[in-house]
Design a protein around this nucleic acid. Structure first.
Ligand SMILES: [Mn+2]
Ligand SMILES: [Mn+2]
Ligand SMILES: [Zn+2]
Ligand SMILES: [Zn+2]
Lengths: 146, 146
DNA sequence: ATGCAACTGCAAATCGTTTGCAAAAGAGCG
DNA sequence: CGCTCTTTTGCAAACGATTTGCAGTTGCAT
C-alpha cells in the first residue's frame, strides 16, 4: 500500500529525457507548480518564485509555462476576463465552475457530459482534440459573504 | 404565414427605449451584425463598416460592442487564441465546435448537456449564470483539404 | 433653430504576453 | 575540476487586442 498519489510527478526526469536543461529558475517554478493548490496566473507564479530567487524574471516564467504546456506537463486556462491561469496536468481531466463573486475555481467532472460531447462531435463528423467547459455562477441561497 | 424569422431584431427601438442615441456608426454596425452569418471579430466588423462609412473608427466598433453586450443584444466569445468574436444574441442558446484546421465555427445544442450542467452546479450549491462550452476538433476520416 | 449631454475620431495608454539580444550558466568531456 | 558548445536567462523593447482622455461633433428634446 501507500503508493505515491498522482501528485508531484518527476518533471526533472521528464525534462532531461527531452534534452531540456534543468536550470535554477525552472526548478523553482516547477516546485511552485507542484505545491500550488489553486490555478495561479503568471504573475502569481512570478511573485512566489521571486521570494525564493529574487533574480527570476517574469519572462522566464512565461517561457517556462509555454515549455511545460508544450510538453503537456501543465494546462493553460483562459477564464473570463483575467490572464491565463495554469495547473499541473498530472491529475484526471476535469472542468471548472467559477464563482462569480469570489473568483473561486471549483473543479468537477461528469462522464456523462464527456460522453455527450464525443457523441455530438461524432455526429457532426468531428473528432474532439480538446474542449473547454466552464460554468460561471453564484452560491445559491446563503449570502455567505466570505 | 410568413412571419419574420427570429433574425434582425429591432435594436433601434430597443436602444431608444434605453435612452441611447441612434447614431450613424451604430446604425451601420447594427446592420452588419444582423447580416453576419459567422462570428466576426472587431476588426472584421470595422472593415465591413468602413466600406459603408469610411469615417467609422475601430474605437467606436469596440465601444458599440461593449454597449450591445451590456444590453444583452450580442454575445462575446473568446475562442482559443484569437481576438473576441461576436454574434447576435437573438437566436436560441447554443455552444460551439471549432474546426482546428479551418477555423470554422459550428454551432450545436444539447439539452441533455445543459441539464447536466445545472445538476452539477446545483449539487455544488451553485446557480449557473452563464457558461461556455467549446469543442475543438478535426474532421474525422476525410482529408478534405477544403 | 438652440442647447447640452451623449457620442465620436484620434492618439496615446493599458494589459498580458512575446521577443531580440548580449551576458550567464547547464551539460558532456577530458 | 576547467573547456567548450549550447541553451537559457534578464532586460528592455515590441506586441496585439482593447480601452481611454480629450476636444470637437452630433442626436434629439425643447
Ligand atoms: Mn483545475
Ligand atoms: Mn454562435
Ligand atoms: Zn471536460
Ligand atoms: Zn450551452
Amino acid at each position: 500500500m501507500n503508493e505515491p498519489q498522482q501528485t508531484k510527478p518527476d518533471y526533472e526526469r521528464e525534462l532531461r529525457r527531452a534534452g531540456i536543461r534543468i536550470t535554477r529558475p525552472r526548478r523553482v517554478i516547477l516546485d511552485i507548480l507542484s505545491e500550488a493548490d489553486s490555478h495561479p496566473d503568471a504573475m502569481e507564479i512570478f511573485q512566489r518564485a521571486s521570494v525564493i530567487d529574487k533574480s527570476i524574471s517574469l519572462s522566464t516564467v512565461y517561457r517556462t509555462m509555454k515549455l511545460l504546456e508544450g510538453m503537456g506537463a501543465i494546462h493553460r486556462h483562459a477564464f473570463e476576463g483575467g490572464p491565463a491561469r495554469f495547473e499541473q496536468a498530472s491529475g484526471e481531466h476535469h472542468d471548472h465552475l467559477i464563482d462569480l463573486d469570489t473568483g473561486d475555481v471549483i473543479e468537477f467532472h461528469s462522464n456523462r457530459i464527456e460522453e455527450l460531447q464525443d457523441e455530438i462531435a461524432r455526429e457532426l463528423g468531428y473528432e474532439i482534440v480538446h474542449h473547454r467547459l466552464e460554468l460561471y455562477g453564484r452560491r445559491k441561497g446563503g449570502r455567505k459573504k466570505k
